[in-house]
Amino acid sequence: MYNVLWSAPAKNRPGTHLLVMLHGYGTDEHSLAGLFPALPAGITGASLRGTFPVGDSHGWFLLDPYLQSGTAEVLEAAAGVFSWLDRVRAEGSFTGVSLLGFSQGMAMAGTLLRLRPAAFTSVVGLSGFITENELLAMAEPLPEPVPFFWGRDRNDWVINEDAILHTQKWLTENTALTARTYPGMGHAIDREEVRDVSIFLRSYVLPKAQDDVKNKSG
C-alpha cells in the first residue's frame, strides 16, 4: 500500500489523465507535490511514496554510489507500482496514464515503461537515468516509441557520465525523445524546466486523451 498525494480531490479525477509521479532516492511523495500547480487542466497528479527505506526517508530500490542496482529488486519495485496502478485504474475512470520521475524516480519510470510499453501515453524524466538491465534489454527496442521528455543539467554531479551515456543511448533507440538541458540547475528542478514539462504534457498528453474519449464515445 502506497502513501499518495493527489493534486485533485476524488470527485474531480474522473475523466482526467493520470500522471504517476515518482520521487528520488532519500525523499518522499511531498518532494514532487510542488509541481501540482503546473499540471495542465485535465491532468491529475498522483505522487507516490517509495516503499524502500532510506534512513528516515524513502526510495524505490537499493542504489549503490555508481547508480547500479539488482534486477530482482528493481522488478519487485515495479510490480508494486503496477499493483497499485491496476487497482486505481479499475476503481476510477482515468482517460490514460503517463509517468514522471525525478532522479531514481526516472529510473523507476523507465522500468515501468520497459515492462508495459503500451500502457503509458508519455514519460517525463528529470535529472535521472535509465537502469542497465540485460533482462529487459532482450525485448528491446520497444515496439512503439513513446514521447519522453528528458531534462537535466549537464553538470549534475549526482548522475555519473556512464549513466548519462547509457541513458542517452537507450532513450534515443527506444523513445520519441525531447531532450532539454538547464545550465546551473544542478540536481534539482527549476522554473524553466517546469514550464517546459507543462508544455510537453499539453502537447503530447491532452490531444491523445481527447482522441481516446472521442473513440470511446464513437
Rank of each mutant, 00 (worst) to 15 (best):
I189D: 02
S83T: 14
H30L: 03
G128S: 05
P117L: 09
A139R: 13
E134V: 14
S83G: 03
T111P: 03
S122I: 07
L113P: 03
V20R: 03
A137I: 01
L126D: 10
W170P: 04
V4W: 06
N12H: 13
R87P: 00
P141Y: 12
T51Q: 15
A179H: 09
G105E: 01
P65L: 03
L85F: 11
L135H: 14
G92P: 00
D162S: 13
R87I: 03
G45Y: 08
L115M: 15
D196F: 00
H17N: 08
A163W: 06
A119L: 09
P141I: 02
I130R: 01
E193F: 03
G24P: 05
F36R: 06
A10Q: 15
H23D: 10
P207R: 13
R202F: 00
D86I: 03
T16P: 04
D86A: 08
E91W: 01
R180W: 03
L19A: 02
G218V: 11
G186L: 02
R195N: 08
F82N: 14
P65Q: 07
G50M: 07
I159T: 02
A46C: 11
V205W: 05
S83R: 13
P117G: 12
G186K: 04
W84R: 01
L206P: 12
G151Y: 06
P37E: 06
E173Q: 14
P40I: 09
Q168P: 00
M1A: 13
L75R: 14
A46G: 08
N174V: 00
K169S: 12
A78E: 06
M1Y: 08
V124L: 04
L142T: 03
T167C: 04
S217K: 14
N133A: 01
W170N: 02
G15Y: 06
D28W: 09
L165H: 13
P147C: 06
S83L: 08
L22T: 10
N215H: 12
K11N: 11
V158F: 09
